[in-house]
């Protein structure tokens, strides 16, 4: 549920300001993951997202403004190209990375977007599977663990309690 909130008030100056920002981040195109078909409009491609000078990306990424926060210089990385096959893939999996050092109680829920992962470069999951030997053991174990639960039949979407 959303609580109904009023407008910011009839403040013309604010409105124009808002519109200018709107123009600045007009989407360049629509990103579409070639594996899971996730789509989202992106507004930047590269390694230095606008509005975030102190952060750099380690790969050429498709980026949108983070739609979930009113903060205007928050970005969200959608995906990039697999460094082996060149497929455009989303950054999923987004769930618990089980490898050492990163498993937090805070982790968001794992979804079925198992399309790629990053290990100093972006790799799509098909390419990782094909070349699993090239990766350190931790990655291999991680991948194995990940494959097991995904074989379970998919549960009713959106009805977990």
């Amino acid at each position: 549920m959303w609580v109904a909130l009023g407008p910011v008030g009839d403040m013309p100056c604010l409105l124009t300001l808002q519109m200018e920002c709107e123009a600045e981040r007009r989407p360049l195109g629509v990103f579409e993951c070639q594996l899971c078909a996730l789509t989202a409009p992106y507004s930047y491609v590269g390694q230095q997202p606008p509005g975030a000078q102190s952060v750099a990306l380690l790969e050429e990424s498709y980026v949108m403004r983070d739609p979930f926060t009113p903060n205007k210089d928050r970005f969200l990385i959608l995906g990039s190209r697999c460094s082996v096959c060149g497929r455009l893939v989303c950054v999923g999996p987004v769930g618990k990375p089980r490898a050492a050092g990163a498993a937090f109680p805070l982790s968001p829920w794992l979804g079925p977007h198992d399309c790629s992962f990053f290990y100093s470069k972006r790799f799509c999951l098909p390419c990782v599977r094909e070349n699993i030997d090239a990766f350190p053991q931790e990655i291999q174990q991680d991948l194995e663990k990940r494959e097991v639960p995904s074989k379970r039949p998919a549960s009713q979407p959106g009805s977990r309690t």
Binding site: L38, A40, D66, P67, F68, L76, I77, L78, C90, V91, G92, V94, G95, S107, P108, W109, G111, H113
Partner: peptide
């Protein structure tokens, strides 16, 4: 990033 992408995917 993972959290926001997770929301997007969901």
């Amino acid at each position: 990033q993972k959290q926001a992408f997770g929301r997007l995917a969901k």
